[in-house]
Design a protein around this nucleic acid. Structure first.
Length: 553
RNA sequence: UGGUCUAUGGUGUAAUGGUAACACUACUGAUUUUGGUUCAGUCAUUUAAGGUUCGAGUCCUUAUAGACCAACCA
């Protein structure tokens, strides 16, 4: 059956433009990050949207750094952003910086002054705010609003020449102090900042505001569809005002709802707070919703792109369940990740009828989902480790694992039956004694027995040790920033990171950083960049789904 | 004493005036040498009230709810 393709509202706009022949059928988008922090999964949605649209309609996408505020922006962030976009699988057509346009923007400010549409205001920040009015009451004109064009021009040029200190003067658009849209109440266009810029150094001491830079940058690059998030809706009036009065290429702005994720924060400022406050170990901490964090956690570009596709694009505020993200990474890794065995909470199991000192190599498939993935050799011997939770002395109904008198298959090996349990002085289980069934070896089973459960194991004398970093959600609240009376940091999950030592099968000894594995029956893990052959470190990406619910028996 | 945007299952996205669909979650059951995967099934009178129409989730009106707007941030 054919599934009818439906368009999101931006695709509808584009197809309408294509039909009308707007811009000669050209589609040109841009991804415009400010280099003041690392990209997060919300940006990934925007990246996939902007680049995806261009791909779909045979257009282009620029990467443009919106770097109009020198005090918060750094080259480190530029590098990380370029890296993350590339890693996600996208290549931009051109790389630009709003700072490339500083001179043009300055010229355009002069145009507005000459048209009587902009003026220099000597008021303080507080005075300007006071005259701004409120959403429900009109503002009042600044006492400097009626300066002559000549005076405005002279003052603005002097601002540029560095004759005035920070905060002493601004350039404002002359629009309407009673406008119902507060953005239009004589917005500030330029401010004085005697600060070094990461690209232009000390060349400038006046810097354009977002509203005087973004639309014009789009226009310079002949962007046809400038896509941003909902909070910029009121800015669209000013975006259009600048383009109209400057009589430049008519880029158009369209707004979609940003991504929100349950149990997650999605604000660069707040993520910075987590980094600076030492609540996480950096922007790429695997608990962070940053692209670099997700990458280190073991997420693949494919899984994130699939996620972006599945969350859709609309204008309605939304909060996506993290389970969808988890579904996407499991779906991808299920196809790709080799299966290996690791015991996270070990208890010793002795096979009493297996000769001491003997060992053999069993051939085990790497991935039953991928016949191309081949097999590997796994050593087997008399003493093994199994998970403590895979044995119960007094099991409930429907317990498929080991218990006294019970039978399970050791994955890829033999069927065993539990004969007895050895306890230490304090009553804890020290060893489980089993015997294996002759002729039950995996792939060559002539025992005729069928067992309900299969458990994983690692041969004790061959086992390697590894550090496992287990992650839980970073916040305990479904919407940490959704409480007016509480700071989001109050909801930080104290147990978001647990470090354990595990036994892993020896084939993992060569595992390289960034490679993902499925630790069978447990979770997907990926080799961390901290990992060395002497101290192997794995990050838990996501657990396997677990349908076993002991309480239901 | 304002303006703008948005309202469809638990979550998200469709249905473009004509049988409310798909995915995720959750819960059943089947299959399984991973309690994974896979496969089947269950879960909605579309915020409310009016109106237009043969026919409304869709158009109109009013209400209600939520979001955004008073940074020399973007």
């Amino acid at each position: 059956m054919e599934v009818k393709e439906t368009l999101n509202f931006i695709e509808e706009i584009i197809e309408e433009d294509l039909k009308k022949g707007t811009h000669g059928g050209r589609v040109h988008t841009r991804f415009p990050p400010e280099p003041n922090g690392y990209l997060h999964i919300g940006h990934a949605k925007s990246i996939c949207l902007n680049f995806g649209l261009a791909q779909k309609y045979g257009g282009k996408t620029n990467l443009r750094f919106d770097d109009t505020n020198p005090v918060t922006e750094e080259t480190e962030y530029v590098e990380s952003i370029r890296n993350d976009v590339r890693w996600l699988g996208f290549q931009w057509d051109a790389e630009y910086y709003a700072s490339d346009y500083f001179h043009q923007l300055y010229e355009w400010a002069l145009v507005l002054i000459d048209k009587g549409l902009a003026y220099v205001d000597d008021s303080t920040s507080e005075e300007i705010a006071a005259l701004k009015g409120t959403p429900t009451s009109a503002g009042k004109d600044s006492p400097f609003r009626s300066r002559s064009i000549e005076e405005n021009r002279r003052l603005f040029v002097e601002m540029k020449e560095g004759k005035y200190p920070d905060g002493s003067r601004v350039l404002r658009a002359k629009i309407d102090m009673a406008h119902p849209n507060m953005i239009m109440r004589d917005p500030i266009l330029y401010r004085i900042k005697n600060a070094a810029h990461h690209r232009t150094g000390n060349k400038w001491c006046i810097y354009p505001m977002y509203d005087f830079a973004h639309g014009q940058s789009d226009s310079i690059e002949k962007i046809t569809h400038s896509i941003c998030t909902l909070e910029f809706i009121p800015h669209r009036a000013l975006y259009d005002w600048c383009i109209d009065n400057l009589e430049i290429f008519p880029s158009r702005q369209y707004e979609f709802a940003r991504l929100n994720l349950t149990y997650t924060i999605m604000s660069k400022r707040k993520l910075l707070e987590l980094v600076n406050g030492g609540h996480v170990k950096g922007w790429d901490d695997p608990r962070m919703p940053t692209i670099s964090g997700l990458r280190r956690r073991g997420f693949t570009p494919e899984s994130i792109r699939e996620f972006a596709k599945r969350v859709g694009v609309a204008k309605r505020e939304n909060i996506i369940e993290v389970q969808l993200l988890e579904y996407c990474i499991r779906e991808d890794l299920n196809k790709k990740a080799h299966r290996v065995m690791a015991v996270m909470d070990p208890v010793k199991l002795v096979i009493t009828n297996y000769p001491e000192g003997k060992s053999e190599h069993l051939t085990i498939e790497n991935n039953p989902e991928d016949t191309e993935s081949g097999t590997r050799e796994v050593p087997f011997s008399r003493e093994l480790y199994i998970e403590r939770e895979d044995f119960m002395e007094n099991p409930p109904k429907k317990y498929f694992r080991l218990f006294p008198g019970g039978m399970v298959r050791l994955k890829g090996a033999y069927i065993i039956v539990c004969d007895s349990v050895i306890k230490d002085d304090s009553g804890n289980i020290a060893e489980i004694h089993c015997s294996l069934i002759e002729n039950s070896r995996s792939g060559n089973d002539q025992s005729g027995l069928t067992v309900k459960g299969t458990i994983h194991w690692v041969s004790a004398p061959h086992a390697e040790k590894a550090e496992l970093r287990l992650y839980d959600r970073l916040f305990t609240d479904i919407n940490p920033t959704g409480h007016d009376d509480k700071d989001f940091k109050e909801f930080i999950n104290p147990d978001s990171l647990k470090v354990i030592s595990a036994f892993i099968e020896p084939s993992l000894k060569q595992a390289k950083a960034g490679i993902s594995y499925q630790f069978i029956r447990k979770a997907y893990f990926c080799v961390d960049s901290d990992s060395t052959p002497e101290n192997m470190v794995f990050n838990q990406t996501v657990t396997l789904k677990d349908a076993w619910n002991p309480s239901k028996g």
